[in-house]
């Protein structure tokens, strides 16, 4: 299956919003039980007594939710060659049951690789945004993406 998107399709400066996900208490607790079993993520009373002021998702769960939205929004249709990593990630606000989070993608930079002319590196800013426009997470990630025209000179 030919991917829809190659390196050349990611233009620096472009901002797009994609699909959303509504977080449930059940999924917050299920994730936390496995990967972040602090009582504040497992139990409403502990959450209310905690620094978060109410049951809230593990920050790692928020990262995972965002990854799923990235996949469903465009990455599964992109000629991705994987990611070397995340430059930075900030957790900005608690994620509560019932929050509907929308993915916002900004293309920060797109550069080709001299040593690997078949690919380029795209730096994205990914955010999850609530209906009140507040971002709950802000992440800068690098993705290696195949070039549609390997080695071609870019304008």
């Amino acid at each position: 299956m030919l991917p829809d998107f190659f390196f050349e399709d990611f233009v620096p400066g472009e901002v797009k919003t994609f699909g959303s996900h509504t977080v449930t208490e059940e999924e917050i607790v299920a994730f936390a039980r496995e990967f972040d079993p602090q009582p504040m993520h497992l139990d409403a009373a502990a959450g209310a007594a905690s620094i978060l002021g109410g049951l809230a998702a593990s920050g790692w769960h928020t990262c995972a939710i965002m990854m799923r939205l990235i996949c469903d929004s465009f990455l599964l249709r992109t000629a991705s060659m994987g990611s070397p990593g995340i430059t930075e990630n900030s957790w900005l606000a608690p994620v509560r049951p019932g929050d509907t989070l929308t993915l916002r993608r900004t293309v920060i930079e797109a550069r080709t690789s001299k040593s690997r002319p078949e690919m380029g590196l795209v730096t994205f800013r990914f955010e999850l945004v609530r209906p009140d426009k507040a971002a709950v997470i802000n992440q800068v990630a690098i993705v290696m993406i195949e070039r549609r025209n390997p080695g071609a000179r870019l304008a």
Partner: peptide, 13 residues
Amino acid sequence: ISPVGVGFGLKDL
């Protein structure tokens, strides 16, 4: 209730 606390963020993953 929060043995390791809350994260501000991460760098250089």
